[in-house]
Lab assay of single mutants.
Amino acid sequence: MAAGGDHGSPDSYRSPLASRYASPEMCFVFSDRYKFRTWRQLWLWLAEAEQTLGLPITDEQIQEMKSNLENIDFKMAAEEEKRLRHDVMAHVHTFGHCCPKAAGIIHLGATSCYVGDNTDLIILRNALDLLLPKLARVISRLADFAKERASLPTLGFTHFQPAQLTTVGKRCCLWIQDLCMDLQNLKRVRDDLRFRGVKGTTGTQASFLQLFEGDDHKVEQLDKMVTEKAGFKRAFIITGQTYTRKVDIEVLSVLASLGASVHKICTDIRLLANLKEMEEPFEKQQIGSSAMPYKRNPMRSERCCSLARHLMTLVMDPLQTASVQWFERTLDDSANRRICLAEAFLTADTILNTLQNISEGLVVYPKVIERRIRQELPFMATENIIMAMVKAGGSRQDCHEKIRVLSQQAASVVKQEGGDNDLIERIQVDAYFSPIHSQLDHLLDPSSFTGRASQQVQRFLEEEVYPLLKPYESVMKVKAELCL
Rank of each mutant, 00 (worst) to 15 (best):
L84T: 06
H93C: 14
R303A: 03
A150C: 15
R194M: 04
K276C: 03
A273T: 06
L319S: 00
T321G: 08
A392Q: 09
S67D: 04
E79V: 10
D129I: 15
S15E: 11
P298W: 00
H442M: 15
L258H: 04
E228P: 08
S434G: 13
L69V: 03
C483I: 11
V478E: 15
C304N: 14
A110H: 02
G54A: 10
L44F: 10
H86K: 02
G8N: 11
S438R: 05
N353L: 14
T52F: 04
N297F: 01
M89G: 06
Q51W: 01
A150R: 07
E50F: 03
S207F: 09
S359H: 15
M65W: 02
G197R: 02
V115W: 03
D332M: 01
K147I: 12
L314I: 12
Y432L: 06
A260T: 11
D117R: 00
E328S: 07
L406Y: 14
V88D: 01
E60W: 09
R329N: 06
C172L: 08
E401L: 10
A77V: 12
G197L: 00
G8C: 13
P298F: 01
P366C: 04
G259T: 00
N274A: 12
I269P: 02
V475A: 15
V29R: 05
R234Y: 06
I106T: 05
H217G: 11
S359N: 06
A388G: 09
A411L: 09
M387A: 08
H93G: 10
C99D: 05
V254W: 07
E425W: 13
R270S: 03
K35W: 07
F345Q: 03
E25Y: 06
K402A: 11
H442K: 04
F36N: 14
E473D: 14
M312P: 04
L444R: 02
R141Q: 15
T242K: 05
D32S: 12
S257H: 09
E417D: 13
K199H: 00
A308C: 12
A335T: 08
S257M: 09
D87E: 14
V29C: 15
D216K: 12
F160V: 08
D268L: 00
G8R: 12
Y34P: 00
T52L: 03
N421R: 05
A335H: 06
Y365M: 12
E302N: 00
I62G: 03
L406W: 06
S412N: 15
S9D: 12
L482M: 15
K233V: 13
Q375E: 06
E425R: 12
Q164E: 03
H86V: 00
K415Q: 04
P10N: 12
V251K: 02
P133Q: 11
M225C: 11
L275P: 03
L275I: 09
Q205L: 06
S15L: 10
D332N: 02
S474M: 08
K367A: 12
L362C: 03
S289R: 00
L346M: 13
V465I: 15
L352D: 05
P378G: 05
L42D: 00
T119R: 00
E277V: 04
L193T: 09
Q439I: 10
A291E: 04
G451Y: 02
E228V: 05
Y21E: 03
Q397Y: 06
K199P: 00
T267C: 10
V88K: 05
A102H: 03
D422E: 13
S448Y: 12
F460D: 11
T347F: 06
D349L: 04
E81Q: 09
R372D: 00
L155M: 04
S412A: 08
Q325N: 13
K224F: 03
S290H: 00
E417F: 08
L352T: 15
A308Q: 04
A308D: 02
M89V: 07
H159R: 00
K246W: 05
V478M: 15
T347M: 03
S448E: 10
E463P: 02
D215Y: 14
V465R: 04
E213W: 08
V363Y: 04
Q221P: 03
T354C: 07
Q375N: 09
C266D: 00
V478Y: 09
A78M: 10
T321Y: 10
P10K: 12
R196L: 11
L42G: 00
V251L: 15
A256E: 05
E50I: 01
L211H: 11
T166W: 00
V88C: 15
S253T: 11
I237K: 08
D420E: 11
V92L: 08
L128N: 15
G451E: 07
P10T: 14
E50M: 08
S112Y: 03
Y21R: 00
P366G: 05
H437I: 00
I385K: 02
M89E: 03
G5A: 13
L484A: 13
E50R: 01
R338H: 00
C399Y: 05
A235N: 08
P293R: 01
Y472D: 07
K35A: 07
A143P: 00
E279C: 03
Q356W: 05
D216P: 07
E228H: 14
Q458D: 14
T227W: 02
V364M: 04
E80S: 08
A230V: 09
F282H: 14
R33K: 14
D398R: 11
M278H: 00
Q458K: 13
A143S: 08
F28A: 12
S23I: 07
E401A: 14
A206T: 07
H97N: 13
R83S: 08
A2S: 13
K276S: 06
T201F: 01
S67R: 15
C340P: 00
E383H: 02
E79Y: 15
L272M: 05
L362W: 04
M225R: 08
R371I: 00
D441M: 07
T239F: 01
L311N: 02
Q51P: 00
A291L: 04
V138R: 04
Q456G: 08
E473T: 12
L108T: 10
S290C: 03
K391T: 15
N71C: 05
F160W: 04
W43P: 03
A388H: 05
L55C: 13
A230M: 01
G361Q: 04
Q285M: 15
A2M: 13
N68C: 10
N185K: 10
S290K: 01
R149K: 09
S454V: 09
E473S: 15
T201L: 04
D268C: 13
A47F: 06
L443I: 14
A392H: 08
C27Y: 09
L165G: 00
I176V: 13
F30Q: 07
Q241D: 03
Q416E: 13
G4E: 13
L406C: 07
I436V: 08
Q408I: 15
S434F: 15
F345C: 10
V364Q: 04
E64Q: 14
S454F: 15
E376G: 02
K479C: 12
L377K: 00
A410W: 03
A2I: 13
R371S: 05
E25R: 15
E50S: 10
S289T: 00
R137N: 10
D268P: 01
E79K: 06
H437M: 07
H93E: 09
I176P: 02
T166Q: 00
K477F: 07
S207K: 05
T204P: 01
E80Y: 13
G5L: 10
L53V: 10
G104F: 14
T154L: 09
G418A: 03
L423I: 11
W326A: 05
V254F: 06
L352S: 05
T239V: 03
G5I: 08
P298G: 05
H400E: 05
K229N: 04
A322C: 06
